[in-house]
Design a protein around this nucleic acid. Structure first.
Lengths: 206, 206
DNA sequence: GTCTATATTTGGATAGAC
DNA sequence: GTCTATCCAAATATAGAC
């Protein structure tokens, strides 16, 4: 069996530290998640923790790496194929986004992102490039193809992408906030589908 | 002259503390903005600060109060009047939102909101009710009237409101992030107008 | 209302025994 | 690799003089 780089499934102390740190950082933020709390929850002393990481910052950076490592599994090929059919492209994108939103692991990462977004410049830059621009690019390509095939009305593909993405993000944020307080997300459960339908109705050709 | 409840313009030490605390909380977060830093920047000792506030939490809550106290200045009357004319309603709403986004004081408050959103349950609840639901209600009313007057296509007014608001929020977030790093917001400067136009084109009757 | 001085806690990090 | 013991800095908060 090849070595497992995904620390979630790891069993060593180092992996345990990263797993615990992820949880605590995403609940308490960088400052709130003290080395003491992390070590305690892992079940070791702070000094033992320093055998695995140089300092707290190194733990955080290792954890933060994971935030943007869950890209969509859509190939260029698939984009073109789906976009030529119109709505199925948006459907695929939306459902993948919904899955990420409700996935426990990604939920923690998104929390961490939101908590540290205004405290960490590198995170902001990565948010802009990995979260925003990457998705805008992907969506734009899809919309562009749809326009070429006259499936949707003529418009700036980038604007359409921006409009579509922004609502997905807002839903995700709301879901994250509600789940943080263990509130029901019933009213938001179908919001992704409503968004998809409303938007498609807004942009499809007559 | 009547007493001034708005601590921004106040001149007493208490007001100075609140003003400084607002700035530091919105830049460093709750934990990062220590009582020491606040007192130091105000120009007094920590102990002197405790003559004005019971503790740090009390300062924060006083500051946080302001976050949601900048509602739109649109009366019920005006909503109906503008909505009957269609696009002007959205125009008015959008421009007010844009003004808040670029207003220095509100920018700080929005930063603070984003920083502490996942650290403070009360803030989350207020965000949902004061930020989200209030705007959804206002926009829904407008869309409902437009539909009654056949200015826009038939749809769920709440969904339309959700779609419209979410993009405004996303633009605001991006602007806030860019300005935090002193990056140019040139590309986003016209995003509000683009959103308005795209959306109106999406929903207006043929 | 502000100061100095101080109590107390928490947090990051290291030394050295096992 | 983990432990105990310890150091040091920073943070919240209070007491009492002026």
């Amino acid at each position: 069996m090849p070595e497992n780089r995904d620390f979630v499934k790891g069993s060593g102390t180092r992996d345990k530290i990263l797993k615990t740190a992820t949880k605590l950082f995403s609940e308490l933020g960088y400052k709130g998640a003290s080395v003491r709390k992390i070590a305690s929850e892992v079940g070791i002393r702070e000094s033992a923790l320093y055998n695995h990481f140089k300092n707290k910052e190194e733990i955080f950076l290792e954890v933060a790496k994971e935030i943007f490592s869950s890209p969509f599994s859509i190939s260029e090929e698939e984009i073109r194929e789906l976009a030529r059919r119109g709505k199925p492209f948006l459907q695929k994108f939306t459902m993948q986004y919904k899955m990420l939103t409700f996935d426990k692991r990604n939920e923690n990462m998104f929390r961490l992102l939101m908590i540290e977004l205004l405290q960490n410049q590198e995170l902001r830059e990565q948010f802009m490039s990995e979260f925003h621009q990457k998705n805008i690019k992907l969506l734009s390509e899809g919309f562009f193809i749809m326009m070429q095939n006259s499936l949707i009305r003529s418009a700036d593909p980038m604007i359409a992408a921006y409009e579509y993405l922004s609502t997905l993000f807002y839903i995700r944020l709301q879901v994250t906030l509600l789940r943080f307080d263990n509130n029901s997300t019933n009213t938001l459960a179908t919001q992704f589908e409503k968004h998809l339908d409303f938007f498609w109705e807004s942009i499809r050709s007559e």
